[in-house]
Design a protein around this nucleic acid. Structure first.
Lengths: 205, 205
DNA sequence: TGTACATCAGTGAACGCGCGTTCACTGATGTAC
DNA sequence: TGTACATCAGTGAACGCGCGTTCACTGATGTAC
């Protein structure tokens, strides 16, 4: 990595830590540059203003999350050819991944952005929207595959079910944080897995 | 209502609106007093500092939410004596209630607090924790009643299932906000209802 | 019923500090000839 | 291979504005005697 891009990454890292702990507005540039061990002007060399930092964080978060899901579904697809089993394996892997994160899940940049909506410009809000819609599309495809083979045991909209993957993770993070029990998020993912299992499980003939 | 307490309520109302839209730190006291049509010093007559405002908002939110759940479960209990049906009715009523809220769900004060943790003092964080644990206890009792009559079709922890009620609502709000689709939250609650139905539904003999 | 005092529900002006942002400058590295 | 210039990755000092908070004061209402 080039000299400058290394500093940029360090800025994003320390900024993300603070923002997830305190929120965007409450995290000052002074604090970021102190933790990143550069000067304030060094920050403005890499980002034209604070909104540009938010945008960069969301873009990076989406990229990380996307490769994570690619990896998860890829591994699940290697382990089974049955679409229902693939989904159940992927959700199990997701739960394990969240559980193994030291000090709980890193939290979700998209969620903090959602709760500080009017603070950001259109650019940032759009990036956020595209991320969530992208995840919906991705999981929808997984559930479509299952539904063609196993008719669901209840009448539900598969788009909503796809949204539930993101939703349960986000909601789990909030409950984890509020109660101080980091294991909750992965348990919530396992409950979603249980739902998927019951929803598509063929009735015993 | 006494003269002073009316102003206090108006402060809480306008503060909540802004905070849910932009976050706590991003909402200035100047903005609050302008919307509440008082002077800045009037604000400090009612709240000793900004943290006291946060605390008051959380306390009020918990009270409102508690009476809301009391009402919901009370009505559901009138409509059926079967504990599973009571839960399914209550979740349906909750979904309808969320759907009917003009301009989408008002959002959750607890969630914004969870995402701005390090910003608040211990007082505020504790109030937040007690709220979520209270809801867990309440829904746990509902699911316990069901489980004694209908053994669940999957091995799950009923505390986690109880947490899922809060979690699905919180997660739904985030997805709603991120996508700009307000109807999502109520649909997510209906999916949880579908899960409860499949989880406790007696197997056809 | 009138008076004195206390409390309630604020007002208005001022405060200093921290914030995001700008700007002129710089030393190290890369590139053309 | 040496020189001139350009770009990269920052530095350091200063800016003005908005923020949360304080403080002395006030007019209206409530209470004791």
């Amino acid at each position: 990595m080039a000299r400058g891009s290394e500093t940029r990454t360090r800025i994003l890292d320390v900024a993300q830590d603070s923002i997830l702990a305190k929120g965007f507005e409450a995290t000052s540039i002074d604090e970021i540059v102190a933790n990143a061990e550069i000067t304030k002007s060094g920050f403005f060399y890499h980002f034209k203003d604070k909104n540009a930092l938010a945008r960069a964080l969301i873009d990076r978060y989406i990229l990380v999350e996307d490769t994570l899901f690619d990896d998860l579904l890829g591994r699940a697809n290697e382990l089974s050819e049955d679409p229902l089993q693939v989904a159940l394996i992927a959700l199990k892997l997701l739960a394990e991944l969240i559980e193994d994160m030291p000090g709980g899940h890193p939290g979700c940049v998209v969620a903090t952005a959602a709760y500080q909506d009017r603070l950001f410009n259109k650019d940032v809000r759009d990036a956020n929207r595209r991320a969530v819609l992208g995840w919906r599309k991705r999981f929808r495809a997984v559930f479509d595959d299952i539904a063609t083979l196993y008719p669901p045991n209840d009448q539900i909209d598969l788009d909503h079910l796809a949204d539930m993957v993101s939703g349960v993770v986000e909601g789990g993070i909030i409950i984890s944080r509020a109660t101080g029990q980091p294991e909750i998020t992965s348990k919530q993912v396992l409950l979603l897995r249980s739902y998927v299992k019951l929803l598509f499980r063929p009735k015993i003939q």
